[in-house]
Design a protein around this nucleic acid. Sequence first.
DNA 1: TTCCTTGCAAACGATTTGCATTGGA
DNA 2: TCCAATGCAAATCGTTTGCAAGGAA
Lengths: 141, 141
Amino acid sequence: MEKEIANRLSDREVRFTKGRQEVIAALVASDGPRSAAELHTIIGNKVPLSSLYRSLAVLEETGVVVPHFATKGLARYELAEWLKGHHHHLVCVDCGAVEDVEVPTMVERRLETIVTEVATTSEFLPFDHALEIEGRCSRCA
Amino acid sequence: MEKEIANRLSDREVRFTKGRQEVIAALVASDGPRSAAELHTIIGNKVPLSSLYRSLAVLEETGVVVPHFATKGLARYELAEWLKGHHHHLVCVDCGAVEDVEVPTMVERRLETIVTEVATTSEFLPFDHALEIEGRCSRCA
DNA sequence: TTCCTTGCAAACGATTTGCATTGGA
DNA sequence: TCCAATGCAAATCGTTTGCAAGGAA
């Protein structure tokens, strides 16, 4: 996976520096989106936050990571769909943790059908959808 | 609708002051969630932002409004479901505007089925769900 | 009077930026 | 060599809070 990312960056003449590699490694190891502060901790406080934000900005512009906003004023980042596959999120209303869920292809198809149906009733051109399931995670239940 | 809100507040011994009424009026007139800054403009810059935030906090605690986070970590508020009904959102990837969509009951049922199916495969107790449809709105298309 | 609410300004946390320095092709 | 990437500190943005003044019960 780091290989595909390296190629993507080099195609766009963007360097895959050490700092950027650490961000990617941290995201690959995560089972859900992570905020800059969380990544900062995971990486071990080596990389200053400002550099982390800069790495995330570059990776976002290159289409490698994508921001996600589910809980109060915090951007969390995750690998783009072409890297980690299409998925949805379980958002804990108590602790704010966000976890990925894979949805079986069959179910995903039904969901796409719904999205199409909903969008045709409005003047809106849909490209994507996100299903956020809110509830309580196993730790908070 | 303002009547139901007034009752809810008085039941909880919370005053329905002029500032709070203006926030509600602005939200009732909107077709999607609105940020504090947007409400500030709609209301006409009369109410200072800090008071607006305080009104929103009280209305949120009383269950009259709910926050929504779709773009750039900006909080946008809308009337709670018991007031405006269950609905979903169309999020424009260009301008960031968020608009409500009503989903026919039949379709909504299918969506609930999907949510239940997805959640049973994980240790997660779902109470609610939000379907965000990302695309381009009629103005940006 | 006694709380609750407001306005203003200052404080806050998350994120961004300017600038001088470092590092890679 | 030369431009991009970094670290640090200061700035910015959205949001929150302390405090003194205003208003309702």
